[in-house]
Simulated scan of single mutants.
Amino acid sequence: MLRERLTAEMKAAMKAGEKDKLSTVRMIQAALKDKDIEARVSGSGTGQIDEAEILALLQKMIKQRNEAAGVYEQGGRPELAASERSEVAIIASFLPQQMDEAETRAAIQAAIAETGAAEPKDMGKVIAALKAKYAGRMDFGKASGFVKETLAGK
């Protein structure tokens, strides 16, 4: 499970003296605790978010850091951009192998057939089916463009 892997990586980073990795893993665990508390307060489930939600959280963290790195580069702060990019690399190491474009398009075709989507207004159903099956493995920003393109071409 991903939670145990995070704990093990944190311990290994402490022992190895890897300060950057340690702070990034601690940041991930803090975000996880926030989400767990949010789940507990809302009364949904066990009070802990599941694996798919953890993967979605990691992807959101990566997106935030990539955006911040872009802002830092535009602002002439390459050292801060490099710091954000190193955090992205560490966070990405906890995600499963990302699907390439061909695999993504094949999964989209299968999801369209499965949901019976026939026009662009059915895009939400297709994306929901993809998120249920491929959380953490698919870039949904790119996938939504492919879904729109595929449904418009039908």
Rank of each mutant, 00 (worst) to 15 (best):
E53K: 14
S86M: 05
I54H: 02
R77H: 10
Q98T: 09
L58S: 06
A89R: 15
G76C: 08
S83Q: 09
A102E: 13
E87M: 13
P78C: 09
L55D: 03
Q98M: 14
L57C: 04
L95G: 07
E101S: 15
R85P: 00
A107W: 04
A68L: 08
Q59W: 00
I91S: 04
E67P: 00
Q98G: 03
P96R: 08
L80G: 02
L55M: 11
G70F: 00
V88I: 10
G75W: 07
P96F: 08
A81Q: 06
E73R: 15
A68Y: 02
A107I: 05
Q97T: 14
R65S: 01
A106E: 15
A106Y: 05
Q59N: 14
A56T: 10
R105W: 00
S93G: 15
G76R: 08
E101L: 12
R105G: 03
S83R: 11
E103P: 00
E103I: 00
E79Q: 14
K60R: 09
E103R: 12
D100M: 11
S86D: 11
E73L: 15
A102Q: 12
R85M: 06
P96E: 07
K60P: 00
A56N: 11
Q97W: 01
A92Y: 06
D100S: 11
I54D: 03
L80T: 01
G75D: 12
S86F: 02
M61L: 10
Q98I: 04
I108D: 08
T104K: 06
Q59R: 12
Q98E: 13
S86A: 12
L57Y: 04
G76D: 10
A69R: 01
I54M: 14
I62Y: 00
D100G: 13
L58Q: 03
G75L: 02
Q97S: 10
K63E: 02
A102P: 01
R85A: 06
N66R: 15
E84T: 00
E101F: 08
A81N: 09
R65T: 00
N66T: 10
Q64N: 05
E67T: 08
L57D: 04
A106H: 12
M99S: 13
T104D: 12
L95N: 08
R77P: 00
G70R: 09
M61V: 01
A89K: 15
R65C: 00
A69N: 01
M99D: 11
Q74F: 10
M99W: 09
G76F: 07
A81P: 05
A68T: 05
R85E: 08
I108V: 12
A92V: 05
V71T: 14
E67D: 15
I108T: 07
A56C: 06
E67Q: 05
M61H: 06
V88C: 08
M61N: 06
